[in-house]
Amino acid sequence: MTDFTDALGAAAALVFGLDASLTEIVMLSLRVSLSAVAIAALIGLPTGALLALYRFRGRFFLVVSMNALMGLPPVVVGLIVYLLLSRAGPFGVFGLLFTPAAMIIAQVLLVTPIIAALTRQVIEDLWIEYEEQMRSLGAGPSRAMPALLWDGRFTLITAILAGFGRASAEVGAVMIVGGNIDHVTRVMTTSIALEVSKGNLALALGLGIILLVLSAGINGAAYIIQHRTKRWHA
């Protein structure tokens, strides 16, 4: 049990001491994961909606692959992005490896399938419900799409939060493409892994507690916004 009380102590000391390197690490974590989720949402929402509304050859295959990609292991994504961004790889000339940009790219690949797959399900369900009505008003899939995305926004926020959870919790991809460089690419999860490897278990767990609290804060904020606006529109 002492490890747990030590961990709480370590977390409290870090937070109340306003540890400068902790602030830096937290800000970088948020910057990387929020950027990745924003980009993934820009790609995933329309992709999911298109898959839900249009019927074409290969759609079944795309839907199944999208769902399967939700389970993509972060280390595999990390490895693929590493090979692409390495100086020996096709995009090596940009020198992006071991930078926050590389970490964002990896997380976009991880999160986009989650947002797209969940969006597809949400929009498809709404379309089943409203198709007849909307068609009678002269709205085909293309005009129905923005309306359905708007109608499903509260559920879609949950899909985006699921994506954020994935991004902020993963360590495998950012470790490989970021390199866990102090002051440059060190984020919450990679510092936790580093402290574990140094045997500083209490400090590692303390950082874990901070990560959990942060995640709870973001989810809480999203929930409050959802409810306020829901009441507004009701």
Partner: peptide
């Protein structure tokens, strides 16, 4: 100095790729 710490085997691999 930006330090990337990995095992010697992977370190050499990263260096060989010019990273």
């Amino acid at each position: 100095v930006r330090v990337v710490s990995v095992g010697t085997g992977r370190a050499i691999n990263i260096a060989r790729n010019g990273d």
